[in-house]
Design a binder for these strands. Structure first.
Lengths: 346, 346
DNA sequence: CTGTTAGCGCATTCAG
DNA sequence: CTGAATGCGCTAACAG
């Protein structure tokens, strides 16, 4: 504890503690001479204000609670980085709670009762700590309605949403559509898609983008080209193997994440298909490793940083009662690399 | 703000605020009947204690500040997860500051003046927030002496150290030695090593482990087998290419991180060497992608979670004036996969 | 077993 | 322009 308080410097500068407070906060005009004395004392005694006391008095803490369902999952760090980015600019501090859901309950998010208490505890802690607002970062996008009650404290979700609260999501459907448009622009028309788990919103949204592209570009529609994966590498491998074993295999495969794309690459290699010469492959997420694979994978970048930034920005506006200028949701971006080429001309 | 305070429930339960405090904290015996009345009131009014007020009074906050040089760098999330693990068990909260050094100054860590102010600000904020202690997580291990002054507040470093403070490091030298021992046990004797930047402590430590293994196992020593990389993929590629072009190429290459190992794999492929048949490859770090490469890379796992856990555990002991039972430093662990095999018999 | 009270460090109202 | 005084919500003597 920095032992010395406003009182000590008041004594030293020969003024009242009120005056010290005034020069500290610039709340009121202070005679230059007095101000100087106070500042000298502050400097000399190396005074550091006590934010705890200030918070108690002011009834807000300038800190926001961040609940991450699991900070070791790839989306969390960049989102938090975005939160910090804005936080730094606005003197907002971050109280971090990590639910550690991946370690505690695995991927079984349907069993809400398994983690409701963790979430409730987190909120409770944060409320006790008097945070000014809360940001909730899910492991994957889904309906979190009823999971927690913030007792009126503002909250914004990202990678998750609620019927009643604001949430920040990127444009999943459009991103998938753009991936398709890109593939089509390269000359592909027989394009397969490997989805994630179908209880996932992004899976459904991205499938919508796929359908829209197929329709708008008038591609021949073949339901056999649509495969349901589970986000894991093995499913990418297995489903790509099926796809490539078809009498008329697709010339391009769009995988809904980079991890399954790894499996697609491996299946292609196993069956003697060269990527991108014999079959083009696209991923999703722009995971770091997608640049390390051979070939380097063309993928969609997720605007993680921007999501965090917008989440806290929105929260900040809510806290300060400003009308939220509804911004464009964060946009995904195509990262062109080496896994897509024009299809072989027959 | 939860409007209702200890005073409200005192009123409602018809007792003094002191009594409420006592039942809340179990600080004193309270007549069961009275206790019940208080508890009922608490329940009924959904009272939540205000930790800010409690902290002001108690002169400690039960929160520790975590300064991460960059939370988007791969080591940070798991370390923080370890910190949370211990924090959850001991009712410690985490105030997170992300210096965002990677984005702000890149990898130029030698220019300390470029980021000293960021670090100083972080400490200053944390001190104002009255944290009970600080954990500093570096991007890479180096001497941080003089970087920051915590004004007596306890601090422990990980991925970095100081002449005066406690720090948690894993057993770099031993890990490298064990990697070598493994390679040797597979029958290799002509083993190359690709280091990271030589201003890095881990680079030097791991090189020591290499030397020790070469000596202890009486391997023929060839200085040409030692290459200085820069942690990046390209250097792994370039240096492995040199190694494999030697008249008598090594039968195994130990890369000091997985990223350079990617380059090694690519160089091998480019020169027609099959891994592991023609040349074995080992990485370091056990990055997620090392399992996605073809072949899957054998590597050393870093005890990130454990480092975070020990860091906060040690800090906790310091804060509470306990004699730190010096534990074994966190240990790396060999992850056996598919990139190592016995060398071809000539 | 219970109540009264004095602060913790600071912002702010009210007097001057 | 400045100071005295009040209280934010809570803990912990102290007194009964």
């Amino acid at each position: 504890m920095s032992k010395i308080s406003i009182k000590d410097i008041a004594l030293k500068a020969n003024v009242s503690i009120a005056t010290v407070s005034y020069v500290l906060n610039g709340t009121r005009n202070v005679r230059p001479e007095t101000r100087r004395r106070v500042e000298a004392a502050i400097e000399e005694m190396n005074y550091k204000p006590n934010d705890i006391a200030k918070s108690l008095k002011r009834q807000h803490t300038n800190t926001i609670g961040v609940i991450a369902e699991d900070i070791t999952v790839f989306n969390a760090p960049d989102i938090i980085d975005g939160i910090n980015d804005f936080g730094d600019r606005h003197d907002l501090h971050i109280l971090l709670v990590n639910l550690r859901l991946d370690k505690r309950i695995g991927r079984n998010f349907n069993d809400v009762t398994a983690y409701r208490k963790y979430a409730a505890n987190a909120v409770s802690e944060l409320l006790s700590k008097q945070v000014d607002g809360i940001i909730y970062i899910g492991v994957h996008t889904r309906d979190l309605t009823g999971l927690i009650d913030t007792e009126g404290k503002p909250i914004v979700y990202t990678y998750g949403y609620t019927k009643d609260d604001v949430s920040i999501q990127y444009n999943d459907e459009q991103a998938s559509y753009e991936a398709m448009a890109y593939l089509i622009s390269q000359g592909h028309s027989r394009i397969a898609i490997i989805s994630g788990l179908m209880d996932s919103i992004p899976s459904r949204l991205r499938l919508n983008g796929y359908y829209r592209a197929v329709t708008e570009f008038q591609l021949p529609f073949d339901p056999l080209l649509i495969k349901m994966g589970d986000w894991e590498r093995e499913s990418g491998f297995r489903l790509a193997a099926e796809l490539l074993a078809m009498p008329e295999p697709p010339t391009a495969i769009l995988s809904m994440n980079d991890v399954m794309a790894v499996g697609v690459l491996q299946a292609a290699a196993a069956q003697g298909f060269k990527v991108p010469e014999d079959v083009s492959v696209m991923g999703f997420d722009n995971r770091e490793f997608s640049d390390y694979l051979t070939p380097r994978i063309t993928t969609m970048n997720l605007p993680l940083h921007e999501m965090g930034y917008q989440a806290i920005e929105t929260l900040y506006q809510i806290i300060n009662g400003k009308t939220s200028d509804t911004r464009l949701p964060p946009q995904c971006q195509l990262i062109e690399r080496d896994s897509v080429a024009a299809p072989r001309t027959k």
